[in-house]
Amino acid sequence: MKAKKTLTRRGFVAAVASAIAAGLAAASLWPVWEFLSPPKTREGQEQETAVVPLSNVGPGKAHFFEFQGHPSVVLQPSPGKFIALSAVCTHLGCIVEWRPREEIFFCPCHAGRFSPEGKVLGGPPPRPLPSYPVKVRKDQLIIG
């Protein structure tokens, strides 16, 4: 027959001490976790839109800026048409560059090639570049 397990005084004290220690450890680690959390995970700090002066994006030119913590790019492929994309290559995270003569985005790390709309034209990138909505308001571009 299996002996019934009884709780000894020493076991009880050890269990209570362990529970208190675990509680204190959790109480100490919580501020540390919050302290180290990156800003974007904090409430109300997500960047909803970015503003770029219209004069920065001439026809056929690209302008790089930061949006939601990532390098991004806005392009005017033809007069009056604007495209905003993430500039982070979907292969391994390098930053793409704009090649106006070829009219492509080129990733210098592993030769990934994207169209002005962000579609994959060649190379290892598995997905197109994420795009953002662009609105023209007076002399500014509102992205996001």
Binding site: P31, V32, E34, F35, S37, R42
Partner: peptide
């Protein structure tokens, strides 16, 4: 600005 920064 940093959460619990004052405490640390």
């Amino acid at each position: 600005d940093v959460p619990f920064g004052w405490l640390i």
